[in-house]
């Protein structure tokens, strides 16, 4: 039961909170203490919108223990609108319908449950966009 980690990462898992460099404006996810571009240590929290395109993906058929009940499932690299690439599961879609370049939006889902007794971990996943909202 990695309860402290579960709790510590909730800003990232629940709201895609990364960092924005105060010196060069570079965005990072996961949050980094040192800017990848200009090496500045000054940054502020930045929430990503959660919209992006699928860059690459795989369907997992043999999974690590805690994910085993969910096979097959899809994990992808997603290019967020803001220009940052992140790793996440792609949900609500059959493996045969996944294509590189598809538009995705963030949703909050169960990542895994720690056995029958432990905490349930929630966090971001991505799904095909339900409806393009014009407003």
């Amino acid at each position: 039961m990695d309860i402290p980690r579960y709790w510590r990462l909730k800003d990232q898992r629940y709201r895609l909170q990364g960092r924005k460099c105060k010196d060069c404006g570079n965005l990072s996810f996961p949050p980094r203490l040192v800017c990848q571009k200009c090496k500045s240590r000054k940054s502020v929290p930045h929430e990503f919108k959660g919209l992006g395109k699928l860059y690459t993906y795989t369907a997992i058929y043999q999974a690590p223990d805690r994910f085993d009940p969910m096979v097959p499932y899809i994990v992808g690299l997603i290019d967020l609108e803001e220009g940052v690439r992140i790793t996440a599961q792609v949900t609500d879609v059959l493996p045969e319908d996944v294509v590189i370049g598809m538009d995705l939006e963030m949703v909050i889902r169960k990542i895994y449950a720690d056995g029958d007794k432990g905490p349930i971990l929630y966090g971001y996943k991505f799904r095909p966009i339900l409806k393009k909202m014009t407003a």
Partner: peptide, 25 residues
């Protein structure tokens, strides 16, 4: 990365599959 790759359900094979898929593409 334990916090941001493994907790997304990636296996080591999965990581290489992400590379291979994009390579084929």
């Amino acid at each position: 990365d334990a916090d941001y790759e493994i907790t997304m359900g990636l296996s080591f094979v999965g990581i290489n599959a992400l590379l291979m898929r994009r390579y084929l593409h």
